[in-house]
Amino acid sequence: MKWKRTTRHWTELSAYLDGQLAPKKAARLQQRLSRDAALQAEYEDLLRTRAMLRSLPKRRVPRNFTLTPDMVRAPRRQKPGFFVPVLRFSSSAAALMLMLTFAFELIGGAPLMTQTAQDAAPAMEMILENAPAETAADEGPMILVWGKQTVPGLGGEMATEMEGLGGGPQGDIPLADAAPEMETMVMEEAAPAIAEAPMPAAAEKEIARAMPSDEAEGAPLEEAAVAEKAYTAGSEDSVILGIPPEEEQGQIQQTAPPIPAPLPERREGMPSLRWLQVGLGTFALGAMLVSFLIPRKRYS
């Protein structure tokens, strides 16, 4: 077999040089060396290289490397002690409690809010039923204030935009003076709403009677009031009604009851939970920072 210059053959030749080749392989290689002059030359090259390397003079140590007690004193790290683990545990516990409060707020807090709102409605109804009726009769018609101060029963939502036409403060404009303008408002602005709302036939007749606009200008307040009454007659149960029917006046004419007491109490629970969350978060963050800063100071 011809000698091939592969890594495996080089390895075998090198190992043979040091007597590290297995006996069988060594015998085979020895036979090949005796037959192959090129392989013999390679072998002698390796022998010479090794001899030259071994001829390198030993370097003398520049000094003794013996150790002193100071050199072998291992720099022992200070243990963190008791305070740091306690801080880290406290921080973790606070963070866990913070998450629990969030979970409580999401799971348990939502029904609580709903319950509060639901409880408030019956309470309000009960108070309204028990309210004394005689006080209502003394104070005139009930005013449902819809966000803004208006002339009772004559302005409604459009009051502020049409100040002087029904939305001004009570008593600013005499009703008789305001009547023509009010009628204009009724015809122009309220017409689409009237058209859309179902209207009883009687009401239509009333409106038709009140509609002749040429005569309506400067018409007395009574006519406008009739039209207004006719317009609102079909929806007696609406809370937007300005002036209730005669027979119903006084029934809901009651002073507004005070806000039920339980409502604010229940709402106070949520801010306290928020404060708890803020406190827990602050503590968790602070304890974590302190526990990380303390060891660095010690080891530096």
Binding site: T7, W10, T11, L13, S14, A15, Q20, E44, D45, L46, L47, R48, T49, R50, A51, M52, L53, S55
Partner: peptide, 29 residues
Amino acid sequence: KSRLARARHKLRDCLAHFRELWDSEFRLE
């Protein structure tokens, strides 16, 4: 073994450039 063989191979090639410095012993061989 493998590393040693490859190291010797490289060293042999490198030392061939300094043949004029070889001792008479190495040259004779």
